[in-house]
C-alpha cells in the first residue's frame, strides 16, 4: 500500500496508476453518447440527472449526516422555476437553467432551514414530506398548470449538446464536491456529523454550515431538475415523483456511500436497468428497493469501495 500524494510523482507508471481510474471514468462517460443509439442516448441523459441527485444525497448523508429522503423536492423546484421562467418570460433554456438552479436551491434551502435542527430519522421523514406537500399545495392552489402541468417548453439546442452538457455537469459536480469535502469546510461538516456538540463547543455555528451544505446539495439537485424540464419540454407534478427520491438512494448505496463517484456509477447502472423494467410500471420501485436492501445486507461497502480495494491490491514493482 502507498499513500496517494507522496509517491504519485515518483514515476510515470505511478502517475498512470493513480490517473487510470479517473481517466477511465471521464473518457468512458464522454464516449458513451457516440456509441449509443437515439433511445439509449435519452436514457443516458436521465441517468445523468439521477447521478446528480445521487451525488447530492451522498454528500448530505455521508458528510453532513442529513439523510434526505426528499430529493424530488429539488428536482421539482428547479424544474418548475426553470419551466415557468421559460414560459412566462420567454427566456432561453440556457439562461433559465442556471437561474433556476440558484434560485431553486435558495428556495429549497429556506424551506428546509427549520428542519436542520433535526437529525437522523426526524430529518429523513420531514424531508420526505416536502415533495408530497408541494404536490398538495400546487393542486390546492391550482397554480402552475395544476394537475396537467405545462407543456411546450423550449428544448435544448440539439441532442449532442443535451448529452454533453449533462455529462459535463455530472463530472464537474463529482470533482468539485470531492474537492469541497477535503477542504476545511468538509472537515467541519464531518465533525458535525460525528459529534455536533463538540463542533459547537469549538465556537462554530453548526446551523450555518448545515445551511451551506444543504445549499450545495440543493444546487446540484435543482440543476438536474431544471435540465429535466427542458429535456422533455414539459413540467408537471411528476417532477415531484418518488422515483427522484428513491433511485438516487439506491444508486448511492449500490455504488458505495461516501465515495461520491460510486453514486454516479450506481446511477449509470440502475437507470438503464429501470428503463429495461419500464413494462412493470410502478413495480420498478420494488426492484430498486430489493437491490438496495440486497446491497445493504450483503455488500454494505458498495461497489466503489470494493473495486477500489481490489485495485489497490494489484501488485506493482517499482525500479528504484
Amino acid at each position: 500500500m502507498r499513500t496517494e500524494g507522496l509517491y504519485a510523482l515518483s514515476s510515470w507508471s505511478d502517475m498512470a496508476y493513480l490517473l487510470a481510474p479517473r481517466v477511465f471514468l471521464v473518457f468512458g462517460l464522454l464516449i458513451l453518447p457516440l456509441v449509443l443509439d437515439m433511445y439509449w442516448q435519452r436514457v443516458l441523459c436521465a441517468a445523468g440527472i439521477y447521478a446528480l441527485l445521487a451525488i447530492g444525497f451522498d454528500f448530505l448523508a455521508e458528510y453532513v449526516g442529513l439523510v434526505c429522503l426528499g430529493g424530488a423536492l429539488f428536482v421539482g423546484t428547479g424544474g418548475y422555476i426553470s419551466g415557468l421562467l421559460n414560459v412566462s418570460l420567454g427566456l432561453p433554456p440556457l439562461l433559465c437553467i442556471p437561474i433556476a438552479a440558484v434560485s431553486g436551491a435558495l428556495i429549497s434551502t429556506i424551506v428546509l432551514i427549520p428542519c436542520l435542527r433535526l437529525r437522523g430519522i426526524y430529518f429523513a421523514i420531514v424531508s420526505f414530506m416536502f415533495p408530497l406537500f408541494a404536490v398538495f399545495i400546487i393542486i390546492a392552489l391550482g397554480v402552475f398548470g395544476s394537475t396537467e402541468g405545462i407543456s411546450a417548453l423550449d428544448l435544448l439546442p440539439n441532442r449532442w449538446f443535451e448529452q454533453y452538457i449533462i455529462l459535463a455537469l455530472v463530472l464537474a459536480s463529482v470533482f468539485s464536491v470531492r474537492r469541497l469535502v477535503n477542504e476545511d469546510f468538509g472537515i467541519i461538516l464531518r465533525g458535525i456529523k460525528d459529534n455536533d456538540q463538540a463542533v459547537r463547543s469549538s465556537g462554530i455555528n453548526i446551523t450555518m454550515y448545515k445551511v451551506k451544505a444543504v445549499f450545495v446539495a440543493a444546487l446540484i439537485g435543482c440543476l438536474g431538475g431544471a435540465y429535466l424540464s427542458h429535456l422533455y419540454g414539459w413540467l408537471g407534478l411528476s417532477l415531484f415523483a418518488m422515483d427522484f427520491s428513491i433511485l438516487p438512494i439506491a444508486a448511492t448505496v449500490m455504488g458505495g456511500m461516501g465515495t461520491l463517484v460510486g453514486p454516479v456509477i450506481g446511477a449509470f447502472i440502475l437507470t438503464p436497468m429501470s428503463e429495461a423494467l419500464r413494462g412493470f410500471g410502478q413495480l420498478r420501485v420494488v426492484v430498486y428497493c430489493l437491490i438496495l436492501i440486497g446491497f445493504m445486507v450483503y455488500k454494505p461497502e458498495g461497489l466503489m469501495n470494493y473495486l477500489e480495494r481490489k485495485y489497490h491490491q494489484f501488485e506493482r514493482w517499482e525500479k528504484v
Partner: peptide
C-alpha cells in the same frame, strides 16, 4: 447506523406498498 436503518426500513416499506 441510523442512516442505514432509515434507508433499509424505508425500502421495506416501499416494497410492501408499491408491491
Amino acid at each position: 447506523m441510523p442512516t442505514s436503518e432509515i434507508i433499509a426500513s424505508f425500502a421495506v416499506s416501499l416494497i410492501i406498498l408499491e408491491g
